[in-house]
Each structure stands twice: as C-alpha cells, then as structure tokens.
C-alpha cells in the first residue's frame, strides 16, 4: 500500500508537469537504454567504419569494410546464404512442433507436469558442453542414429563430411531445442478465457474447429512473437555450428555469427566484424519490419490493436 501510495502522489505531481503517464512507467527503460545500450550500439556502428585491432586506436577507413565483405571476401556472402538456409529450414518446423506439443501439453492429464518438464529439458541444456558430447554420441559414424538406421536395414550415413548432412544435423539440434517457444505457447493457451471454449462447445463445434477458429486466432500475438524471436535467434545461431561442426565441412555451416566471432576475437578485426554485424542487423530489421507490417492482417489483439 505504501508502494501504491507513493505512486499516487507521484502520479498527481507528474500529471501536472507532464501529460503522459506512460513515460513514467517507461522511465526505467529510458534511463537504462541511454546508459547501457546507446553507447555500445553507437560504438559498434562507429567501429564498422574503422580498422580496429583491439589494441591500438580505431582508424577511420570509410566504407572499406562494407566494400570488402561484398567484393573480396568470399566467405561473408556464403555465410549469409547458409544462415538463411538454416533459418528457413529450422523456424517453421520448430514452431509447428512447439505449437503442437504445447497444445497436447495443455490437456488436463495425470502426470502432465512430468511431460512438460521432460520436453523442456533439451532446451535447458542450451549450449552446455554436454551437448557437444551428446551430439557426438548421436551422429558419429557408429553413433546411435546410424545404428538405428542400420537396425532398420538402411546404410549408415556420413553426417559430418557432407555439407547437406551437416546442415541437417544442425537443423535437428535447433528443432530439438524447441522448449522455449513451447512454453510461451503454453502460457498463451493458458491465458485463453475458458468461457470462449465453453460457448463454442455449447454451439457444438468440433475440437479441430475450435482449435483453428478459436485457439489459433487468440494466440496470434504469441505466434507472431515466437516467429519474430525465432527468426532473430536463428539468424544469429552460434552454438550449434560452434560446438558441433565448427563451420565445416568446407564452410558449409560457417554461419554469419561464426564469421563475425572469428573476425572479432580470433583475427582481431573488430571493425570488420562490426560492419558485418550491422549488415546482419539491417537484414534482420528489414525482415522484422515486413513481419510487423503484415501482422495487421493476421495478428488479432484483444486490446483493439491500437499500437
């Protein structure tokens, strides 16, 4: 109560001085952004126009970094290509899988907690060292996957020497860690008012009709969120190629974030790495903008959608 009291007085005084209550709630974020975000962002943008080796002062070189990555560096364009390929393959599968499982896990069944936890476990592992060992156990020549293929009468596959197979391995890892999207879907499903379902059931609607006509539209804000976030994350995927393929074979999984990391901390070309990051930034931003623009058509907000 003391808390809310101080807010009331604050509110009154602020209202006199300023019309906008919203800015008060935004204040922590505004301060934080000014202090913690603006400086590193501007710095990295500045570095992108310099030659910066981390030990001496950055030297301004204009657009040279940007020119280099699109002309003389064969790896950068290639990295964009494979990163996009990975994203396009992983995101839809992962989201569909996550939504489907969230739907199932939303049932009232005995022991459902156990299953929810079990499905989330792979995502808790994250980029843990154990994942690298695990993946070796699964995908080496005589690993579990090949043994299963052979048991079913197939022939073992060389998972890491062929570009397409290596990509496949990374996609599987990406999909396997679907837990975060699933949990977000699950909490969205939980937030749907029960009376909506009851009304539909009274009207005699079938389960699948309910799912597509009621559930899906109601969670479009969450689908939208997960879609944006997964695109952002997958276009910046680092752990998979870093831990498992090391960018290989012959750079077929040399993702953009890996090439940025190599340039920044192995080659000490922070300027160049920053330039690459800003190109990646622009690509993601453009994509996000498109999704945001189209969202008016398919995302339904219960608050009336005034944003």
């Amino acid at each position: 109560m003391v808390l809310s009291f101080s807010f009331i007085t604050l509110e009154a005084s602020i209202l006199k001085a300023r019309k906008n209550m919203g800015l008060l709630y935004l204040l922590p974020w505004l301060i934080g952004t000014a202090v913690f975000t603006v400086y590193p962002f501007i710095s990295s943008l500045f570095y992108s126009f310099t030659n910066y080796d981390l030990i001496s002062k950055p030297k301004f070189i204009g657009f040279a970094n940007y020119v280099e990555m699109f002309t003389t560096d064969p790896d950068f364009i290639n990295s964009l290509k494979v990163t996009v390929e990975y994203t396009v393959l992983t995101v839809p599968i992962q989201l569909a899988f996550a939504l489907f499982l969230a739907f199932i896990l939303n049932f009232k069944l005995k022991g459902i907690n156990f299953f929810r936890t079990a499905y989330y476990v792979p995502s808790i592992l994250g980029g843990n060292v154990a994942v690298a060992i695990l993946w070796k156990f699964l995908f080496t020549k005589e690993g579990l996957i090949n043994q299963m293929i052979e048991a079913l009468g197939g022939k073992g596959v060389g998972w890491l020497s062929s570009p397409s197979n290596a990509m496949f391995v990374l996609v599987i890892l990406g999909v396997w860690q679907f837990g975060s999207s699933m949990v977000i879907f699950l909490s969205a499903l939980q937030q749907i008012p029960l009376d909506l379902y009851e009304a539909a059931q009274v009207d005699g609607a079938k389960k699948w009709t309910i799912f597509f006509k009621i559930t899906i539209p109601l969670i479009t804000p969450t689908i939208f969120f997960n879609l944006v976030m997964q695109l952002v994350n997958k276009l910046q995927e680092f752990n998979g190629p870093y831990l498992i393929t090391n960018g290989g074979p012959t750079k077929s999984t040399y993702f953009t974030s890996l090439i940025i990391y190599d340039n920044a901390f192995k080659n000490f070309r922070m300027g160049y790495a920053s330039a690459m990051s800003w190109v990646l930034f622009t690509i993601i931003a453009a994509l996000a903008l498109i999704i945001f623009k189209t969202s008016d058509r398919w995302v339904y907000y219960s608050d009336g959608g005034n944003n």
Binding site: T140, K141, E142, G158, S161, I244, T245, N246, G248
Partner: peptide, 18 residues
C-alpha cells in the same frame, strides 16, 4: 581418408573416439 575422419571424429580430438 579425410572424409572418414570428418564423419567419425568431427573436429574433435581423436583421443576421445571409440
């Protein structure tokens, strides 16, 4: 062959391979 090594060992040390 190099191909065999990639499939069997990945980019790891062979000290930890079967």
């Amino acid at each position: 062959s190099r191909k065999w090594v990639m499939d069997t060992i990945g980019h790891d040390s062979i000290a930890t391979t079967k």
